[in-house]
Design a protein around this nucleic acid. Structure first.
Lengths: 107, 107
DNA sequence: ACAATATATCAAGATATATTGATTTAATGA
DNA sequence: TCATTAAATCAATATATCTTGATATATTGT
C-alpha cells in the first residue's frame, strides 16, 4: 500500500488517536502501562501499536520482556501536523499508571 | 463523529485521493466531467464527493442541472498539508475530458 | 531446562465502508 | 405539463477493519 494511505489509515481510528495522544503526553511507555492506563486488553493494544509503528508514528525499544513504545522523532511534516491536530483534540486522557516501575506487571 | 477523524476518514480512500488530485490539477469540474475523465460510475462518484464535501475538502456550486465541485479555499492547515502530500504522490492522472462544455453530457 | 511473565500473533465473529445497479429528485426546454 | 438529463440517494452485496479470547514466542530468574 502507498505510504500516504498507510499513514492516513493509521490515523483513522479512535483507539490509535488515543494511544498517540497518550504517548505524546506521557512519553515512552511499555505495553503493560498502556494496558492499565488505557484499560485495553493486550491483543487489542498490540495490534494498534503495530499499525502505528508500521505507519511511522512510533518506535519500539525492547528492554527484557518489556517493550517500550514512543513517538518517533523526528516526525516528517505531515505526521507532525497530524500529531499537532491530535494534541488539540478534546480528549479526556486517563492518568498514567506506571505498573512497570512499581513492580511486576502481573496483568 | 469528531471533525479530525472525519477529515482523516475522508482521506482514507484511493478513489477520494484521486478525486482530490484531479480537482487540484484541473480546477472546478462538474460531475459528468469527473465521470468521463476518471471513468467512474455516477453513484460511486457522487458518494465520494459527498464525503469529501462533508469533510471540508471540497465545495459544490450548482449551475442548472450541473454540479461543479472544487477544492475549498482557503483550506485549514492540516487539510492543506494533506493536499500537499497528495500533490506529490505518484499518481497517473487521466487527462481532463470536458464533456460538459462540448455539449450535453449524455452519459 | 523449567516456570513465570510480557508481548505478539492467530482465528472467529462483529462492525464499518465501498461498489454496483436501481430509483428518486431536480432543473431545463419543448 | 411532459420528456430529458444530471446528480443524489437507496438497497444489496462484497470487502476491509476492529474486537475478543486463545495460542505462540521470547525473556528472565531459579
Amino acid at each position: 500500500m502507498d505510504v500516504f494511505l498507510k499513514t492516513v489509515s493509521a490515523l483513522n481510528d479512535e483507539t490509535r488517536i488515543l494511544i498517540l495522544r497518550f504517548l505524546d503526553e506521557y512519553g515512552d511507555s511499555c505495553v503493560c502501562d498502556l494496558q492499565t492506563s488505557l484499560d485495553m486488553i493486550q491483543s487489542r493494544l498490540s495490534r494498534h501499536l503495530k499499525i502505528l509503528k508500521e505507519a511511522g508514528f512510533v518506535r519500539v525499544e525492547r528492554r527484557g520482556t518489556w517493550a517500550y513504545y514512543a513517538i518517533r522523532s523526528p516526525l516528517d511534516r505531515f505526521r507532525s501536523e497530524a500529531l499537532e491536530e491530535i494534541r488539540h483534540l478534546d480528549i479526556t486522557l486517563p492518568p498514567l499508571q506506571k505498573t512497570s516501575q512499581t513492580g511486576a506487571c502481573k496483568l
